[in-house]
Computed example of a mutant assay.
Amino acid sequence: MHGPVSPGWLLVALCAVTGGYCLLRMRSAVAEQRRAAGGEALMGFGMAAMAVPAATVAPPPWAWHVYAVVFGTAAVRALWAARTSPHHLHHLVGALAMVYMAVVMAVSPGGHHGGAGLPVVTGVLLVYFAGYVLRAGVRLIPVPASVGARIPVARAAGWGDRPELARACRLSMGIGMLAMLLTV
Rank of each mutant, 00 (worst) to 15 (best):
G3F: 01
S6H: 05
S6K: 13
P7A: 02
L10C: 12
L11C: 09
A13D: 04
C15K: 08
A16W: 01
A16F: 01
V17A: 14
V17R: 15
G19I: 00
Y21A: 10
C22R: 07
L23A: 11
L23H: 08
L23K: 13
L23T: 08
L24G: 15
L24I: 14
M26A: 13
M26Q: 11
R27N: 04
S28Q: 01
S28P: 00
A29P: 08
R35T: 05
R35H: 05
A37F: 01
G38I: 02
A41E: 00
G44K: 09
G44I: 02
A49H: 04
A49K: 08
M50D: 05
V57I: 07
V57F: 05
W62S: 13
A63G: 02
W64F: 03
V66K: 15
V66R: 15
V66S: 14
V66M: 11
V66C: 12
V70P: 05
V70I: 09
F71H: 09
F71Q: 05
A75F: 03
V76Q: 13
R77W: 03
R77F: 01
R77P: 01
A78G: 07
W80R: 15
W80Q: 15
A81H: 06
A82N: 12
T84Q: 12
S85P: 07
H88F: 00
H91Y: 03
L92Q: 12
G94Q: 07
G94E: 01
A97Q: 10
V99A: 09
A102H: 05
M105R: 10
M105I: 03
V107F: 00
P109D: 06
P109S: 10
P109L: 07
H112K: 08
G114L: 04
A116R: 15
G117C: 03
L118Q: 13
P119C: 04
V120M: 10
V120N: 14
V120R: 14
V121W: 06
G123P: 14
L125Q: 11
L126H: 12
Y128K: 15
A130W: 00
G131A: 07
R135T: 06
G137R: 12
G137C: 09
L140D: 08
P142N: 14
V147E: 09
G148K: 10
R150E: 02
V153M: 11
V153K: 14
A154N: 09
A154T: 11
A156S: 13
A156R: 13
A156G: 11
R162D: 05
R162N: 08
C169F: 02
R170V: 00
R170D: 00
L171Y: 03
G174E: 02
G174H: 01
L178R: 11
A179F: 00
A179K: 08
A179R: 06
L181D: 06
L181F: 02
V184A: 10
